[in-house]
């Protein structure tokens, strides 16, 4: 198998709570993998197990072909990690912190460092205590991306960045991905995941509930369709896979399971359709489908 990360049946208990309850995660080498889940779902715990900072109570985990608990130091030469909450030393300057993290990881690329400082517009002479949350994240991001490593593990790395910096971040992820690196990106920002990730895993309560390419996830779900026709469209509700039909004179809206879309289109062909819009489910809708229902339960 050519997976950069593979975890099966991970269990991690903290006292009585089961933070991870049989979680599976597979990230192939070279892919940018989105890792989604609400707060408290176990994303950070998973990442800390992948880094060997926590030991799983059960399950197998391999990172870059090694056991992260046993071989932490050897593996960490080949990966870079950006924590969700970046804590730095108040009296070190940002530049010192970047060099320190880079060096402890096994050295960083000086040219790349200068380029990233410019791109993320970070003043490296400021003391870390004066940095805002976003600036602290920039320190960790620059230290990570200036290292030439095979795997980047990023835990909500852009939660404090402004939209300009978000664009800089996306550009940087594309660059390292083009160079062949693997990226595991835990995020709450759907547009970011949709823009960057080829595959996505969604977890809830310590269990993986969906995993696959964005296209395949969409295929499992419904497309929203809005039709404007000369008159009402009859017979829709009886078709397989059609849900939530709302008719309003000449306007009709409904959702359809993706696999039943062809039949619906053939049915619509029998009407005088003036306009038709359809959009695939956004990642947000996918996500809400998994959590919205559960939340109201």
């Amino acid at each position: 198998m050519n997976d950069a990360i593979s975890a099966t049946g991970l269990v991690k208990r903290f006292g009585r709570t089961r933070a991870l309850d049989g979680l599976n995660l597979a990230v192939a080498a070279g892919e940018v993998h989105g890792f989604l889940g609400p707060n408290g779902a176990g994303k950070t715990t998973t990442i800390r197990v992948l880094l060997g900072l926590l030991r799983a109570d059960a399950g197998q985990v391999r990172v870059l072909g090694g056991d992260p608990w046993q071989d932490a130091v050897r593996l960490h030469h080949r990966l870079a990690y950006v924590p969700g909450e970046v804590n730095l030393w108040p009296n070190l300057s940002g530049g010192e912190a970047i060099d320190l993290f880079g060096d402890l990881r096994g050295g960083l690329d000086k040219t790349r460092r200068a380029e990233l400082l410019e791109r993320f517009q970070l003043d490296p002479t400021k003391r870390c205590r004066t940095y805002s949350k976003g600036n602290k994240q920039k320190v960790a991001l620059i230290a990570a991306f200036a290292s030439r490593v095979e795997l980047f593990i990023l835990d909500e790395p852009t939660s404090g960045l402004d939209p300009l910096m978000e664009a800089a971040f996306q550009q940087t992820v594309r660059e390292v991905s083009a160079d062949g690196a693997t990226v595991l990106l835990s995020s709450h920002i759907f547009s970011e995941v949709e823009a960057l990730c080829s595959k996505v895993s969604i977890i809830r309560d310590g269990v993986t509930v969906e995993s696959g390419t964005l296209a395949s996830l969409r295929h499992l779900t419904r497309t929203s369709v809005a039709v404007e026709a000369a008159g009402p469209i009859s017979g829709l509700a009886g078709l397989p896979g059609v849900h939530d039909v709302v008719a309003n004179g000449t306007q009709t809206r409904f959702d359809v399971d993706s696999r039943d879309l062809p039949g619906v289109l053939r049915h619509l062909a029998g009407f005088e359709v003036h306009a038709l819009t359809s959009h695939p489910p956004t990642l947000e809708e996918l996500f809400m489908r998994h959590y919205g229902v559960e939340a109201s339960r």
Partner: peptide, 15 residues
Amino acid sequence: DRPGPAAGSRALLSP
């Protein structure tokens, strides 16, 4: 606070 160095010196870069 005074500004700090823009880069880490050799002496800093180890545990």
